[in-house]
Amino acid sequence: MKPSDAYPTSATSATSDLAQLIQQDIAAAGGWIGFDRFMAQALYAPGLGYYSGARPKFGLMPDGPQGSSDFVTAPEISPLFGQALAAQLAQALQVTGTRTLWEFGAGTGALAEQLLQALGDRIDRYCIVDLSGSLAAVQAQRLARWQGKVEWLQQLPAEFEGVVVGNEVLDAMPVQLLAFDGQAWAERGVVSHGEGFAFEDRATALRPPLLDSVPGSVTEIHPQAEAFVRTLAQQLKRGAVFLLDYGFPEAEYYHPQRHGGTLMCHHLHRADPDPLQLVGEKDITSHVNFTGIALTGQEAGLTVLGYCNQANFLINCGLAELMEAATLPQRAMAHRLIAEHEMGELFKVIGFAAGEEFEALGFARGDRSHTL
Rank of each mutant, 00 (worst) to 15 (best):
Thr303Ser: 14
Leu322Tyr: 01
Gln41Arg: 14
Glu321Cys: 01
Ala326Met: 06
Ser52Leu: 10
Thr231Asp: 14
Ala179Trp: 03
Ala40His: 05
Arg336Gly: 13
Tyr7Glu: 14
Met264Leu: 11
Ala354Phe: 06
Ala158Pro: 01
His341Asp: 15
Met343Ser: 10
Ile315Phe: 12
Tyr253Asp: 06
Gln141Ser: 14
Ala110Glu: 15
Gly34Leu: 04
Val169Lys: 02
Leu131Asn: 04
Asp201Ile: 01
His259Ala: 09
Gln234Lys: 15
Ala28Gly: 01
Gln224Ile: 10
Val218Ser: 11
Asp272Met: 15
Ala144Ile: 12
Gly31Thr: 01
His335Glu: 11
Arg258Tyr: 08
Phe248Trp: 14
Tyr307Ala: 03
Arg188Ile: 09
Gly182Leu: 05
Ala86His: 08
Leu170Cys: 10
Leu314Trp: 00
Thr12Gly: 13
Leu322Cys: 02
Thr73Gly: 11
Ala90Thr: 07
Leu276Met: 12
Pro174Asp: 12
Pro275Asp: 09
Glu321Met: 02
Leu206Pro: 01
Leu111Val: 08
Ala136Trp: 00
Gly261Glu: 11
Val218Asn: 02
Leu93Met: 11
Glu252Tyr: 12
Ala294Trp: 09
Phe71Asn: 07
Leu48Thr: 01
Gly182Ser: 04
Ala325Pro: 00
Phe58Trp: 06
Ala353Cys: 10
Ala294Arg: 09
Val72Ser: 03
Thr303Val: 11
Lys57Glu: 03
Glu356Ser: 14
Leu85Pro: 06
Ala92Met: 04
Asp36Cys: 02
Arg365Ala: 15
Phe248Gly: 09
Asp367Ala: 06
Thr12Cys: 13
Thr12Val: 01
Leu244Asp: 06
Val150Thr: 09
Trp102Tyr: 00
Glu299Lys: 15
Gln139Glu: 05
Tyr246Ala: 14
Pro56Leu: 07
Asp25Cys: 12
Pro157His: 13
Glu103Gln: 11
Phe58Lys: 05
Phe160Trp: 10
Gln235Ser: 10
Gly301Trp: 12
Leu89Ala: 03
Val165Pro: 07
Ala251Met: 14
Glu250Arg: 15
Gly261Ala: 12
Leu18Gly: 07
Pro56Thr: 02
Ile22Pro: 04
Phe352Thr: 04
Gln176His: 15
Ser192Met: 10
Ala92Phe: 05
Ala251Asp: 07
Arg331Ser: 11
Gly351Phe: 10
Met173Val: 00
Tyr254Pro: 08
Leu236Ile: 11
Met323Cys: 07
Tyr44Arg: 07
Gly47Tyr: 11
Gln176Asp: 11
Ala294Lys: 10
Thr231Arg: 15
Ala294Cys: 14
Glu359Leu: 11
Leu156Gln: 02
Phe197Val: 05
Leu135Met: 15
Ala172Thr: 09
Tyr7Gly: 03
Asp272Cys: 10
Ala360Ser: 12
Pro215Gly: 04
Tyr254Arg: 13
Gly148Tyr: 02
Phe104Trp: 06
Val218Tyr: 01
Phe38Tyr: 09
Ala334Glu: 04
Phe363Leu: 08
Ala184Gly: 03
Cys127Tyr: 00
Pro273His: 10
